[in-house]
Write a protein that binds this DNA or RNA. Structure first.
Lengths: 295, 295
DNA sequence: GCCAACCCATACGTTTTCGGTATGCCAATG
DNA sequence: CATTGGCATACCGAAAACGTATGGGTTGGC
């Protein structure tokens, strides 16, 4: 059963004539006649009544025509859909993001994406620091919004911005009276830290900052997420050194202050599989850059 | 865009491997590989990611796969539907009937048909004597239940039974006291006649009956339908000579009596276009014969 | 009533396309 | 480093499709 035969069949049925259909199909009449007879042989029954003034569908032919038209349309639509997906005007993009960035970026990024790629399904999933590489590699997310960037041979990175570190503390803390906190004031104070540097690069950036200023902060707790860190800060367990954008998700009672003398910052990056050829990634990148530039 | 290519594509996508798919398709691996690449060239984008451990659909490939499967199923279903219609296990049969026969036959015929051809849509249309030939010729009805039969070179007839003529009269008529009415008693009485013999053969059968017995009945009215004839009989306008089965549709107050000495009868027939090759006609014929035999 | 026109079917040669076999290339594996 | 597994390429024979030429049946006009 060949799609060409079905196309010919539909043409003949619509033209009610082999000759007319052949003309419209830009082919000679005899081969078309042959193809129709072959289709009838395949079905095992006549599909047309041959009259002296053309051809007319039999009941069996009418039954076939209904389905054949749909099948042709579906096949054509399938090809078209594949082209559209390849061109980036349709499809799905699954965006992984880290929780810290959610409040700062998503409210602006989502409408921007919907405007740029209206035919594309968007899918947002929160990523933990420990699984984001795996989620990219197994393609369960197309791109990841990371802070800091991922380093992996299979993963490509585009830096789209940076965030300075700030000090998070309870509002009632004496340090909160200062406009900016000198690094020296941190000496000896308890620190709420993120996971070990070998698991989370953000942590090692903080460690490097402290080391360079020769500050030692005893680690009061290690927590998984920025969220948890802020809860412990609020409880008075210690201070946290976090990217500035974490402020947007902070609960009441937490204040953020810049660190004087500390120019360190942490990169915001878009990461994706090197072999992912989705054209949507480029568009996604443009959108994130636009959003970050107005942060 | 060829249906074979889509079938190959689906096979490869499901097997996630050209080699495995080729095995299942009972063909060699290289030509299958070629067909896949041709499909990709047609789409203009890769449909698979080639890994060292097989093939994996790209997003564009996934978009195509969804439609391709449906298109294949629809095409196969179309062929199957055409076969079923040709075999008479599916389809539609449009049955024309004359009103006189409706009460006598349809209540038994319809359930019989539904049992015999459960997958077939039934469609019943009442035919007037004047249009039934045209309705058969333009195929707006597949078969017609006629009384009497149609004579036309394009139309085939199967006689399935006959109905004796009976006399219809008001219940209060003196003739109603007789068990059977001798023909002689009709002499000179007013007759409610059906359309002129050149338009309705039933009428000419009645005329022949009267002529043979040398009875003259003045025509009180000519009416189009048996229904109307009985109304006028009830109103006392005259008598009517009708097929026995008309009794079943008669209103209260009309009685039917056999005509003594009159062995005339009128045929009940199934009629259809000679070139109509629907296998349902044969089944329909069997059902009507069964019903008529128990009339 | 014959001839022309119309339309579908058949025949045959040519061309395109498809499938099979042999083989190459690449990566992963031991 | 050799072997294995898997896809891609090259080439050849076979099958299918297309075009041209032609036949046959019916309609409609002169």
């Amino acid at each position: 059963m060949d799609l060409r035969r079905l196309r010919y069949f539909v043409a003949v049925a619509e033209a009610r004539s082999v000759g007319k259909a052949a003309e419209r199909l830009r082919m000679a009449q005899p081969p078309l006649s042959v193809q129709i007879r072959k289709l009838e042989a395949e079905v095992g029954a006549p599909l047309f009544r041959r009259g002296t003034r053309g051809m007319d569908l039999t009941e069996a032919g009418q039954a076939l025509l209904a389905r054949a038209g749909e099948a042709l349309a579906l096949a054509a639509d399938g090809i078209e859909a594949a082209r559209a997906v390849a061109a980036g005007s349709r499809g799905r993009i699954s965006v992984g993001y880290m929780f810290v960035l959610a409040n700062a970026m998503l409210p602006r990024l989502i409408p921007e994406l919907r405007r740029s790629i209206p035919g594309v399904d968007l899918d947002f999933v929160e990523l933990s620091a420990s699984t984001r590489v795996a989620r990219l590699l197994d393609r369960s997310v197309t791109v990841a919004l990371c802070m800091p960037a991922i380093h992996h041979p299979e993963i490509q990175v585009a830096r789209i911005g940076a965030q300075p570190f700030m000090l998070a503390m309870p509002a009632r803390s004496p340090l909160a009276r200062l406009g900016a906190v000198p690094m020296a004031k941190l000496q000896g104070r308890p620190l709420i830290a993120l996971p070990r540097p070998d698991e989370d690069p953000a942590s090692s950036a903080v460690a490097a900052l402290l080391r360079r200023h020769q500050i030692v902060m005893p680690i009061a707790s290690r927590v998984e997420t920025v969220h948890s860190a802020m809860s412990l800060v609020l409880a008075g367990e210690g201070l946290a050194i976090l990217p500035a954008c974490a402020k947007l998700g902070a609960p009441q009672g937490i204040v953020f202050r810049p660190l004087r003398d500390a120019t360190d910052s942490i990169d915001i990056a878009v990461c994706w599989r090197r072999d992912s050829q989705s054209p949507l990634i480029r568009t996604f990148l443009r959108c994130t850059e636009k959003v970050v530039s107005r942060l």
